[in-house]
Design a protein around this nucleic acid. Structure first.
Length: 744
DNA sequence: CCAGGGGTCCTTTTT
DNA sequence: GGACCCCTGG
């Protein structure tokens, strides 16, 4: 269904939104309150540019933070502008960075098949780096150092300047601890390990493109010629480097349109600077500012509660959300004995409401502050046979067996990848122990060679005959795999494979089997019953590679259709044929849920997620749990605030925690329930209610007593429900409980 | 020098 | 449910 023209669609916008859509030249700031139709407005704007202002779609770049947001935007744009909008570049910040890096890698001295380190790999790289200079020693908190390094990189501070920053902090007598000194030292070494491994980390995906654009006139011109309109979603979450990138990409045209809500800034911990949105007009003089204040999502009561909470924060863009929705149900509030009781009662309440109001499992979401809080809910929901899905959290790619297989693939794709090599060099065990690896690393440092290069030239004199032979076998194994891969890649680039497993995936399947990971999983008694599941994960990994390969060819088909018409506008790099490196890069940047969650799951299961991963989502019925001091606000934030003392920090940790609650409340469309546990943890420590609860006007709340009494109808429904669930449990185990004749 | 077992600790938020 | 450390036996 392609719309006849864009203007007919503009009719569904309110005057503010229409202004936002049509203010097309120069910098634009759209301050969009929660639930104000942000994505819709941006999608309209893109459609307007294409259909009314006749901008070529490939000149438009829309940047989001998550793959999910990019996918949602793609869907909306497609609905408003039709298939001709396909060439619009819709990408996350990090994917866009990776794309720029891939194209211009040689100019940075980066190998074209660079590895991307995230999470555990970054940590491993830091450990390696610290091992080399033997800084740290016992009880060295690598994660903390990594956070510090990441903070520097997100502000575009290089190691030399980091050292200067630390030293200056010390001489000024400010609170710069010895960790910062060590971290500055480690930072330099860490960068060296990355470069020697032909790798970049997540921060580099933004930082290196900025450096490139900043220093290379040709690159700047090339990109300015290519992209004319830049749009950024969730602008309140951008950090210093992202601001630079936005500025550089927009260039002199300054067609930069950003959308965001300072009240929803919840990523200061990873370098987001709410000042970016608060001072947009200073950064981009002459900017048009539009405020979207109508909320289309929530009931009046929910919105009032949200407004009451956020009102407590200083330094906000003035904004008052209004809604034309009804007053809605009261907000429920309950106190439970402990986590288990809370989870039980929430589960019961979900079952009850689902029956009573004929809702789907997918209408419910349980929101919590920390990932670990989700576990109790998982247990209880599983026990009750309530289908659920955990959003965010630990990724598929963090699974040990998946990470192991990926390390093998990476070691083949990029022979310099030290972190991948170290991970698999003795897994499954092949007689290359810790001491041997240590010796190799030592020799490498001595002779100023990379770890991988040293491996290739290690001699019996270095590590002994047995170990040397094992290393030889190991490298030969990878070498053979690499040759087979080249053949597979050549085949994959030649023509699409439609039926069977595509060549690279087929190669990967074979190679992973040869690694012996599967045997080891089966053999290891610790895996117990999870062994078959783990082996399945390896198959899934091959499946994602297959999907990538097919995806490349689908894109090729689309691109050819558009490049024939506009050959001169084709991107200079053209279409990239499928490669293992491409598959790995995609996997590194992928949304872990995206590939595996099919759309069906969405309406058929209760969502469990942290407040952070809830941003941008909405649910009819929301449970906000664990509203206690120490959880929300989190103890670490309370500490951090105390540490900061009176210092007028822009990023006030407690203000951010309040925004987190605000985000949580505004996810709810129809109903909201708040709860807390009176005691928590192994030792059943008594808790205090969250300080923010007192800020919600009591007349909005329906306070429930602990062992609440239900009305006769409610009890009847629960009984009925109980029997329905029992019946469902007796059905084949694969089948999710599906009460008769209630849904659909 | 290597493999494997068994204890202990802890857990903010994420691209 | 891990990640990590130390110990033991080959």
């Amino acid at each position: 269904m392609t719309p006849r023209n864009a203007s007919s669609h503009l009719l569904s916008l309110n005057p503010e939104q229409r202004r936002a859509v049509q203010a097309t030249e120069g910098p634009v700031l759209i301050l969009a309150g929660a639930g104000s139709g942000k994505t819709k407005t941006l999608a309209h704007r893109i459609a307007h540019l294409i259909r009314v202002r006749r901008v070529e779609p490939q000149r438009i770049v829309a940047v989001t933070f998550t793959n999910r947001a990019a996918a949602e935007m793609r869907e909306r744009v497609g609905a408003f502008a039709g298939p001709e909008a396909r060439p619009v570049v819709l990408s996350t910040f990090h994917s866009l960075g990776a794309r720029i890096l891939r194209e211009f890698a040689p100019r940075l001295g980066l190998p074209p098949r660079f590895a991307i380190y995230a999470g555990a790999d970054q940590l491993a790289a830091l450990r390696t780096a610290c091992g080399e200079v033997s800084i740290g020693g016992d009880r060295f908190d690598y994660k903390r150092v990594l956070r510090q390094i990441s903070d520097w990189k997100s502000r575009s501070v290089d190691p030399a300047n980091a050292t200067r920053e630390v030293v200056a902090g010390i001489t000024r007598g400010t609170r710069s601890d010895e960790y910062a000194v060590l971290a500055a030292d480690a930072y330099l070494k860490y960068e060296e390990v990355l470069r020697a491994s032909g790798a970049v980390d997540f921060d580099d995906l933004l930082l290196l493109p900025v450096r490139l654009l900043d220093q290379d006139e040709e690159v700047r011109r090339a990109l300015w010629k290519r992209w004319h309109y830049i749009m950024i979603d969730e602008y309140q979450d951008t950090n210093g480097v992202q601001l630079q990138l936005a500025r550089l990409l927009a260039g002199q045209r300054r067609n930069l349109c950003v959308v965001g809500d300072d009240d929803q800034s919840i990523y200061a911990f990873r370098g987001a600077d709410v000042g970016n949105i608060l001072e947009f007009e200073r950064h981009f003089p002459g900017a048009t500012v539009i405020t979207l204040e109508q909320n289309y999502r929530s009931t009046q009561r929910i919105l009032e509660a949200a407004n009451a909470v956020i009102r407590g924060n200083p330094h906000r863009h003035p904004k008052s959300l209004r809604t034309e929705n009804g007053i809605g149900a009261p907000i429920d509030f309950a106190e439970y004995e402990d986590e288990a009781t809370e989870a039980e009662e929430v589960a019961k309440e979900i079952q009850y409401r689902r029956m009573q109001y004929k809702l789907a499992w997918g209408d419910f979401a349980v929101l919590y502050r920390t990932n670990t809080q989700g576990r109790v809910f998982e247990e209880v929901l599983r026990e009750r046979n309530i289908p659920y899905r955990v959003l965010g959290g630990d990724s598929f790619f963090d699974r040990k067996e998946v990470a192991d297989a990926l390390a093998y693939l990476r070691a083949v794709a990029n022979g310099k990848d030290e972190i991948a090599l170290r991970r698999i060099i003795n897994y499954p065990t092949r007689g290359i122990g810790r001491t041997t690896v240590l010796k190799v690393a030592e020799r490498a440092t001595e002779r100023k060679a990379g770890f991988a290069a040293m491996l290739a030239q290690i001699s019996e004199g270095d590590v002994g005959a047995a170990a040397a032979r094992s290393i030889g076998h190991f490298l030969a194994f990878l070498g053979h795999a690499r040759q087979a891969l080249h053949a597979a890649e050549a085949e994959s680039g030649r023509r699409p494979v439609l039926d069977a497993l595509p060549p690279i995936a087929r190669w990967a399947e074979h190679f992973i089997r040869e690694t012996g990971i599967e045997e080891d999983i089966r053999r290891d008694p610790r895996n117990g019953k999870s062994a078959p599941f783990r082996v399945d994960n390896l198959r899934d990994l091959v499946g994602t590679i297959a999907r990538y390969e097919r995806g490349r060819w689908e894109e090729a088909a689309e691109l050819m259709a558009s490049t024939l018409a506009e050959a001169s506008l084709a991107p200079p790099a053209g279409w990239d044929p499928p490669t293992l490196h491409g598959a790995l890069a995609r996997l590194a940047l992928a949304d872990p849920d995206e590939d595996r969650d099919d759309k069906r799951q969405e309406d058929a299961s209760v969502a469990l997620l942290t407040l952070h991963s809830a941003k941008g989502l909405e649910f009819p019925d929301v449970f906000l749990v664990g509203l206690e001091e120490g959880i929300l606000p989190h103890a670490r934030s309370i500490e951090a605030a105390a540490d900061a003392g009176g210092t007028a920090l822009v990023a006030d940790p407690l203000a951010e925690e309040r925004r987190l609650l605000y985000v949580g409340i505004t996810r709810a469309q129809r109903r909201l329930m708040l709860s807390l546990c009176k005691s928590r943890g192994r030792s059943s420590q008594p808790t205090q209610p969250s300080r923010y609860l007192a800020e919600i006007p009591p007349d909005l709340l329906n306070v429930r007593t602990a062992q609440e009494e239900r009305s006769p109808e409610e009890s009847a429904t629960l009984r009925q429900n109980f029997f329905a669930e029992m019946k469902a449990m007796l059905e084949p185990p694969e089948q999710a409980p599906r009460p008769p004749g209630i849904e659909e």
